[in-house]
Design a binder for these strands. Structure first.
Length: 564
DNA sequence: GCCGTTTTCGGCCCGACTGTTTTCAGTCG
């Protein structure tokens, strides 16, 4: 039993209640309770009384207590008696909500997606009051799409879509300015769709230009202020919402459609408590509509510091001190990158010059070690050769500290790819798992422990091995890993590659870990991935002092020299 | 179901758009 199990239980109950047309505020109470538990930094064993949390009262506390003690929930069991599990799936169909689903279930007896599809084809859905031919077609189409199209896309793909759309927005006349909004602006790991805010005085013709773009496959909604389309690229399709806005409302609209939903709710509650009202058009105060020159101004109206989009998630970001949260500008060096010695695309010298262009004070060359043959890992001889090369070119680049290093494999049995005699010759050692991902949690944790306990290993790269929207990664016990990291003073990496973002923001949040954020660049262009890494740190509400590559040149030099 | 310097009832964030309706319910973000 973990906190996650309790959160899942409360959210499942909320969904089932929604489908049984329970009071929406009651449904919302269960969701808020789940969110309160998720926000709480304590482990399950440390929580004595759930009802002390704001948002959890006697009712939900009883549900949790029953579940913790018996592993069951009578409320959920009762709900499952009346609501078929497959109705939950129907909530994923756009345009279908609990009320319509309940009606379809009650009137037509549908319990599965296939059954609903059949009723659409037979024309029975359009016979129901409140339903028409168009609704029937939309449901039918949505079922087909649900079965063929992924629900969400990983951040890397989202950014590809983003660039395609932005290239077109740059070309359309009548657009005064635009910005990405929504979860993509918040650098969420997975997003369902893309949102853009477009400032224009001629929404009609801009919308017309947009719907005629060659990659626009479908127009879902088209009003005066909003356009929803589906775009296609390669084999992927994704929804795009575009809001048309005047100059005055630009920043409040951008804020509104950046979300998250929870953040917006929180902002509106804050406004309401002051007798004001927030909408995308501005802040209504004593009958007057205030607008702002920037999002910063909007926040400061509520006596809040600027809260970066990446942090706008749960609503708690308005309650905490955000001024110490790490930003991209705080990063002074990149501690994990590859060269042509292993599987990188550039020479040591090219990587050095690229890091100088980034304005870094220090960098570490960390090619793969010998066991990683697919990546042309370095044996001792070639590593020595690289050490000599780095020593030789250092005097040419006084503006940056170039450290020697390795990304050493942690082998299947927990042994390390280089001996301590070799490691002591390096300035900096990273350890990482690149093989035998299918091992048990005990075996994986044994390998990680062995690396952490080595006196020369300073940080663990991409600690879970996951790929976002791809493979899950190997079996890591996070509680143990965090303790291990602290006990051995071994830093954990947030790998900034947008396919990885490993550790993830949810793992580092409230962890108290010492971290480092690195691009793992295999190409000079990959050094730009740092923005994804710092976005992940911000989502984890990580402060500057927790990230070793925010250290000044001198402090970092000292930190490297001192060792563990 | 939760909450309370309007405190044990009556609120709970706000607006756009669609489709079906003929003034608005449902859904979405």
């Amino acid at each position: 039993m973990t906190k996650k199990d309790i959160i899942n239980l409360l959210e499942t109950i909320a969904t089932y209640m929604e489908l049984s047309l329970e009071n929406p505020f009651k449904v919302s109470a269960y969701r808020k309770a789940a969110a309160a538990i998720e926000r709480d930094p304590r482990a399950l064993s440390e929580i004595e009384d759930f009802s002390e949390m704001k948002g959890i009262g006697k009712g939900v506390n009883d549900v949790i207590t029953e579940y913790v003690e018996t592993g069951r929930s009578s409320i959920l069991d009762d709900l499952k008696e009346t609501v078929p599990v497959s109705l939950v799936q129907m909530l994923k169909l756009p345009t279908l909500g609990p009320k319509k689903i309940a009606k379809l279930h009650k009137e037509l007896g549908v319990v599965t997606l296939e059954g609903l599809k059949a009723e659409c084809v037979a024309g029975n859905v359009s016979e129901l009051s409140g339903f028409g031919k168009k609704t029937e077609d939309n449901i039918s189409k949505a079922i087909d799409e649900l079965l063929t199209r992924p629900e969400t896309y990983p951040i890397e793909k989202i950014q590809t879509f983003r660039k395609i759309i932005e290239a077109s927005l740059d070309e359309i006349t009548g657009i005064d300015r635009y910005d990405i909004a929504g979860s993509a602006r918040r650098y969420k790991e997975m997003s369902k769709d893309l949102d853009f805010i477009v400032q224009t005085t001629d929404a009609h013709s801009v919308a017309e230009a947009l719907v005629n773009l060659p990659f626009v496959k479908d127009v879902v909604a088209r009003g005066e202020r909003k356009l929803s389309v589906v775009i296609a690229h390669d084999l992927d399709q994704i929804g795009v919402d575009i809001r048309f806005v005047t100059a005055e409302a630009y920043h409040t609209t951008l804020h509104h459609f950046t979300g998250s939903k929870e953040h917006n709710v929180k902002m509106r509650q804050i406004a309401k408590s002051r007798g004001e009202k927030v909408s995308e058009y501005g802040v209504e105060k004593e009958g007057e509509l205030l607008t702002f020159e920037s999002e910063s101004d909007f926040f400061s109206h509520f006596d809040l510091p600027y809260i970066a989009p990446t942090m706008r998630e749960t609503g708690e970001e308005t309650d905490i001190e955000v001024s110490d949260i790490v930003t991209l500008d705080d990063i002074r060096g990149d501690l994990h990158m590859h060269t042509v010695y292993s599987d990188g695309a550039h020479s040591v010298r090219e990587m050095v010059e690229a890091c100088i262009d980034k304005g870094y004070d220090y960098m570490i060359i960390t090619d793969h070690s010998k066991s990683l043959r697919v990546a042309n890992g370095l044996d001792e001889d070639r590593l020595w050769q690289q050490i000599e090369e780095i020593k030789k070119i250092r005097p040419e680049y006084p503006g940056i500290d170039i450290y020697t290093g390795t990304e050493m494999d942690i082998l299947k049995d927990g042994s390390l790819d280089f001996s301590e005699d070799m490691l002591k010759e390096l300035d900096y050692v990273i350890a990482a798992i690149h093989s035998s991902f299918q091992q048990t949690e005990d075996e994986i944790m044994h390998r990680l422990r062995s690396a952490c306990e080595n006196p020369y290993v300073r940080h663990i790269a991409h600690p879970t091995g996951r790929l976002i929207g791809g493979r899950a990664g190997y079996a890591v016990d996070f509680e143990k890993l965090i303790q291990m990291s602290k006990d051995t003073r071994t830093v954990m990496e947030v790998n900034a590659n947008p396919r990885r973002l490993d550790l993830s923001s949810s793992v580092i949040r409230n962890s108290g870990l010492m971290l480092t954020v690195n691009t793992d660049a295999h190409h000079t262009q990959h050094l730009e991935f740092m923005e994804y890494g710092t976005a992940t740190l911000q989502k984890g509400l990580i402060e500057k002092h927790q990230v070793i590559n925010t250290f000044s040149r001198e402090d970092f030099r000292e930190w490297v020299k001192k060792g563990k």
